[in-house]
Amino acid sequence: MENAFNEEKIALFLKDNKNSLWMKIKKSLVLLFVLFHLSLIFFQAFWSTLDVYWTVRLDKTLSIPILDLFKQNENIEPYYIFSGTNTGYGFYGIQTATEKYLRTTYLNSAGNVLASNRHHGFQTLNGRTRFKSYASFLGNYISDTEKLKEKTNVDESFKKVLEFRQNYIKKSFKWIGMNNAKKIKNCESYKVELISIVPVDMMEKGANNEKPKLYAIQEYTFPIQ
């Protein structure tokens, strides 16, 4: 009954839908494009969910020959970028991370603390939130680099990549505190730390309302040149 009603509605719709030939062609092209676009969105969402599961849970790189063709590649990448489809949507999914931030401590020649800050000049809430994104990125980047270091039997190009990654991390830490350090009187050196909140065990948490514990994932101390 429901189906018959739908058929009737479709027939009525088609009857009313008397467009010129050009309009019909245009409509068909729009429809084709929309179907292509939505298929890509579906594929990207499906693939990224599967890929993250494989990487995080099974610690393997997922590769399915046919599906690999539809993955973001150099032929289709510009479309992914312009349509914003190359995303995990910014929703938390598998393996949520705890908050991370960068803290700089400014020291005098005796090693005494002159000042400390974790906002690095960011004044707005939006800017500070974005800066935390950078700290999260650095946290993941350091962790991935550590994993790469464990690999054995590597070739020269791999060693170069590893060296580049280590340099990038060190340079980022160096730049983050440098400009402020130069402005502080008697500052001879500065220490930059990437701090993370220690995850709690939910079974032990209970009514425990202690402040979150913190630990430094990585730290560097630089002299002021």
Partner: peptide, 30 residues
């Protein structure tokens, strides 16, 4: 619908979303 559906599936495969740990990780801040 696609975005939320797959986000829901991804979360469902993580135990942390069922025992509250992932929510705690997301909102705990200094």
């Amino acid at each position: 619908m696609i975005a939320y559906f797959f986000s829901g599936i991804a979360k469902a495969t993580d135990l942390g979303w069922w025992n509250g740990k992932s929510i705690w990780k997301a909102i705990a801040s200094v």
